[in-house]
């Protein structure tokens, strides 16, 4: 049956079931999801591996102290895979009375000196509940301004110890050039994450800029953020068709074209249903990492569940 996206949205919203009950972490969904043996399969839907960029939990500050709550929420949403951002792992040195420069230096020293056991213990937290850390997201934009090679190596080692297959960063071309030699040394990939900046020639936002950046290293892969790509008037389906072998994951969210706003799934211009079916039908190993920035008055867990349910119906 062919349905338009508008019709699909109505079907999906009309048939919501789990979103209402998910707001309580003690719900049936949550308890069922805590089965540790499920692992990444927990969010393997019709051959498409789903995961979450926990930036979506807008009501949960990203700190390492909140990591247990993060894990609870991932389980409540039935996620078996995560793209873990470094603030969930590293200490926050930006405390009152500490200047940004002092905090940066403290973080640098911490990264250079922390023992591998620290990361192994975090990996175990995720392993124990069956969540795969697929990638480790690092804010290279801040770190690269003044970081040494040793610190970049330490970041890749951290990702590797956490069990990640690659590090990911929001990227620009000159930074990608500098990072070209690092991922291979650690047996990892570097995921290049795009935004929607079409005015900066150094930005990673168009297919052309991706092609250029990917040419810098065989260890580079695209983390195609489809909502930003659409906002930059890119052709997501064409990109996947042409470059799927170099795509590590898609960041799944919705936005409107022409630098438009973020929207709930199905209300923007990203062809989410087609993307998911394309991955499924071609049996591509491209995880779909849910990430959104649209506003909502609902809790992060409820909103993630609504978007996840939309995806499940896309593949039903």
């Amino acid at each position: 049956m062919n349905v338009t996206r508008r019709e699909f949205g109505k079907l999906a919203l009309g048939g919501l079931s789990s979103a209402v009950g998910i707001s309580s972490l003690g719900s049936r969904d949550a308890s069922a999801a805590t089965t540790a043996t499920a692992g990444a399969n927990r969010s393997l839907i019709e051959g498409v591996q789903f995961g979450l960029q926990p930036y979506c939990y807008h009501d949960l500050p990203m700190t390492r102290e909140n990591r247990p709550l993060l894990i609870e929420r991932l389980l409540a949403n039935g996620m078996g895979m995560v793209e873990l951002m470094s603030p969930w792992v590293e200490p926050n040195f930006r405390t009152p009375g500490v200047t940004p420069e002092q905090a940066r230096e403290k973080l640098r020293q911490w990264r250079l000196n922390v023992a591998p056991d620290y990361y192994l213990a975090i990996k175990k937290e995720f392993d124990d509940v069956g969540i795969t850390v697929f990638t480790y997201y690092v804010d290279f934009r801040t770190s690269l301004r003044d970081s040494s090679d040793a610190e970049v190596d330490a970041l890749f080692r951290a990702g590797q110890t956490l069990g990640a297959k690659g590090c990911v960063g929001s990227m620009w071309l000159s930074a990608a050039q500098r990072l070209a030699s690092f991922p291979g040394k650690h047996g990892m990939f570097l995921g290049l994450h795009n935004h929607a900046n079409l005015s900066d020639p150094d930005a990673l936002s168009s297919e052309e800029s991706f092609i250029k950046a990917l040419s810098y290293s065989p260890d580079f892969k695209a983390v195609l953020d489809v909502r930003h790509f659409v906002a930059a008037n890119g052709d997501c389906l064409g990109f996947l068709e042409r470059h799927h072998s170099r795509v590590a994951s898609v960041h799944l969210g919705d936005r409107r074209r022409n630098n438009g706003r973020s929207t709930p799934f199905g209300e923007g211009d990203a062809p989410l249903i087609e993307i998911l079916r394309m991955i499924r039908d071609n049996q591509w190993s491209i995880p779909a990492i849910i990430e959104f920035e649209h506003g909502t008055l609902r809790s992060g867990v409820e909103e993630v569940q609504l978007m996840f349910d939309y995806c499940k119906r896309a593949l039903a």
Partner: peptide, 22 residues
């Protein structure tokens, strides 16, 4: 239509809750 308040999978303890803006 974003907020379903009933359904086969709804948890009775939270049925009727429309949103959480704590």
């Amino acid at each position: 239509g974003l907020l379903a308040t009933s359904g086969a999978g709804a948890d009775p303890s939270t049925a009727g809750r429309s949103y959480n803006a704590e």
